[in-house]
Structures are given as structure tokens and as C-alpha cells.
Amino acid sequence: MYTISNGILQATILSKGAELSSLILLATGDDYMWPAGEAWAKHSPVLFPIVGTLKNNTYYYQDKAYQLPRHGFARDKNFTVTQQDAESITLQLTDDAATHAVYPFHFQFSISYRLQHNSLYVTYHVINTGTDTLYFSVGGHPAFKLPMTTDTAYHDYFLKFDQEETAGRWPISPDGLIEQEPLPLLDHNNLLPVTKELFAKDALVLKHLRSNRVTLASNKTNKALTFSFPGFDYLGLWAAKGADFICIEPWCGIADSVQASQQLTNKEGIQSLAPQAGFERTWSVALQ
């Protein structure tokens, strides 16, 4: 367990999965992260080298079948710290014999956490250390406590996107796959009321939004957070059934569709890197 602080925020990161486990606004002592309670045993798992579920938990690469669980293996691996100071930390995972059995690529995957003013910046760095093209997806899954105050209720909150959106939600099949057609969600507006019923049929999956920032707030409290996700083509919103949190999930990648070919190189949202090339994406959250 590692802690960083800048006098305004304090963040705690676990070595397992390089997972963010708390984010405290020091002026109030409030932790904005879900504390991994009974409803869901995670805080903010990292999704790599896939996002979501594979069809039959299987993909094919160079005519060979491989199996990966939902969201990949990084969240269950121990990362090594490669840099740390008072306000930032970087943790790293590299391929080994165990990863090669399920994912035949050479990679260096690092996650950096950096505090600046009232914001936490989380950066994913991927380097292809092999001699073949690297195919991967990566994403975040942070869970924020809701309601934020004892005198407000879950349904008092809303999500406000920074752009007006016309976007459907892509339904998820019982097998965790993306259905073929979206259902209506946002129609020329930027406000989405938050209710527990919203997640009764699993996550809301949004594709290619105009927005790259969304604010979680209520008219009944000044406490809020603003989540920025530039460069992420997909956004998931989720909560466990009846649970007091909401996950805001930026993804570079997505679960297989119900009609997916299961060929890794043709997977929707898959990222590709030439040998020795690098990839970087950053999401951030600002607290108030």
C-alpha cells in the first residue's frame, strides 16, 4: 500500500492491480472512493489487456485460441513501483511466463498517479517491448461513493456532460456481450439523472461521445466531482445492484459484441502498437 499527498488531496494505491483504493479531500477528511464493501469488493480495478468480456471468454490470434477473464489479468497482478515522490507514483507490470500462456505478447504496462491542486491524474503507459504488433485494450473502473453527504440521497445526483449529447446505451447480453442495437438514453441534452434503477440491467455503455468531461453533482450539496476522459472512445457507467456508488469508466476498448468474430486483430476498439512504440492515455478527477 502506497500513499501520496499534496496537502489538498491524499491518495492510496495498492500494489495488487495498482488499484486506487482511496482519494481523500484533506480539508474535510472525506474519502470519495467506494470502500470495497459487501456489494462490490473492488475500489478501482485496472482493465488490461482487454476491457469487458470476450465471447466465450476466448479470442484467436494467429490461429490459436486463448482464454482471458472479463477485464483481463492486470487487476489481479502485483505491480512494482518504479517511481515515487510525495505527490506521484508509478507502478509497472511486465509480461512473464504466466501472461504468455494467455496473452502471447511482450509489453511494459505502467500506471502513474499524480496529484495536482484538487485533481488526481491517472495515466496508462503501454510500451510494445516485442518484435510483433501488440494488440490490447485498457481502461479504468473507479467507483465513487454516492450519496456524497449524509443528508442527500442517491437519486439526488445527476451526471452533467460538457457537451450536448444524442447517444444511446448499448445493452449488455446475459453473457456480458454488447448487443447489436442501442437503446435511447440521451436526446439532445447533457443531463442524466442518477438512480439505482438505471443499472438494473447492468452497465450503461456509451460510444464515441462528443464530451470528454462529466460532472457528478447534486442541487442539494456543494460537494461534487468532475471526471475528464480525453482520448477514450468509450465510457461505461455502472453500479452493483442497490449499491451506494457509481463507477465512471473510461475505456480504450470494449467487450465483444454478440456477433464478434473473436479474432483479436479485428476486435472493436482494439489498440495496436508497432514494436518499441508507446501508447499513453490520461483520465483525471477533480474534487470539490
Results as ranks from 00 to 15, higher is better:
167 A>Y: 13
126 V>A: 11
165 E>C: 07
164 E>L: 12
188 H>L: 05
72 G>D: 01
175 D>W: 01
190 N>I: 01
195 T>M: 11
180 Q>P: 00
90 T>P: 00
129 T>Y: 14
153 A>Q: 15
167 A>K: 07
116 Q>H: 09
103 Y>P: 02
97 A>Y: 13
155 H>N: 15
103 Y>S: 11
73 F>W: 07
121 Y>N: 11
199 F>W: 07
160 K>T: 14
90 T>H: 01
97 A>R: 11
102 V>Q: 15
97 A>F: 11
64 K>V: 04
153 A>R: 10
122 V>Y: 01
81 V>A: 10
100 H>G: 04
114 R>T: 05
105 F>G: 13
112 S>D: 05
200 A>V: 05
78 N>E: 10
140 G>R: 07
75 R>N: 06
179 E>H: 05
140 G>I: 14
161 F>G: 00
140 G>Q: 07
130 G>D: 10
166 T>A: 08
203 A>R: 10
119 S>L: 09
156 D>V: 00
122 V>F: 02
99 T>D: 12
197 E>W: 13
102 V>N: 15
176 G>D: 07
197 E>Y: 15
86 A>T: 06
95 D>Y: 06
73 F>Y: 11
109 F>Y: 15
116 Q>M: 06
164 E>P: 00
102 V>C: 14
155 H>K: 09
159 L>G: 03
122 V>Q: 13
90 T>V: 09
198 L>T: 11
119 S>I: 01
143 A>H: 10
177 L>D: 08
118 N>G: 05
65 A>H: 08
169 R>S: 05
148 M>I: 03
203 A>N: 06
173 S>T: 09
178 I>D: 03
182 P>L: 12
118 N>C: 12
117 H>M: 13
174 P>Q: 01
200 A>P: 14
114 R>W: 06
175 D>I: 00
89 I>A: 03
189 N>I: 00
203 A>L: 12
159 L>D: 13
64 K>I: 03
174 P>N: 04
160 K>S: 08
82 T>P: 03
159 L>I: 10
109 F>K: 07
139 G>T: 10
178 I>C: 04
184 P>C: 06
116 Q>K: 08
132 D>Y: 11
152 T>S: 14
63 D>L: 13
68 L>N: 02
69 P>K: 07
187 D>Y: 03
193 P>K: 04
113 Y>P: 02
88 S>T: 00
180 Q>R: 12
115 L>S: 04
182 P>A: 09
89 I>G: 07
147 P>W: 14
188 H>Y: 02
70 R>V: 14
159 L>R: 02
149 T>N: 06
68 L>D: 08
157 Y>R: 05
92 Q>E: 09
127 I>F: 08
113 Y>L: 02
125 H>W: 13
105 F>A: 14
89 I>K: 02
86 A>L: 10
194 V>A: 08
75 R>V: 06
197 E>R: 12
142 P>H: 10
191 L>Y: 09
74 A>N: 02
71 H>K: 02
179 E>M: 14
69 P>S: 05
201 K>S: 14
134 L>G: 09
125 H>K: 08
131 T>V: 02
187 D>N: 10
199 F>T: 04
110 S>H: 04
99 T>H: 12
79 F>V: 00
137 S>Y: 01
82 T>E: 04
74 A>M: 05
148 M>D: 03
80 T>E: 14
185 L>G: 04
149 T>C: 06
197 E>S: 15
129 T>E: 09
124 Y>P: 03
123 T>I: 05
151 D>A: 05
182 P>E: 10
141 H>M: 13
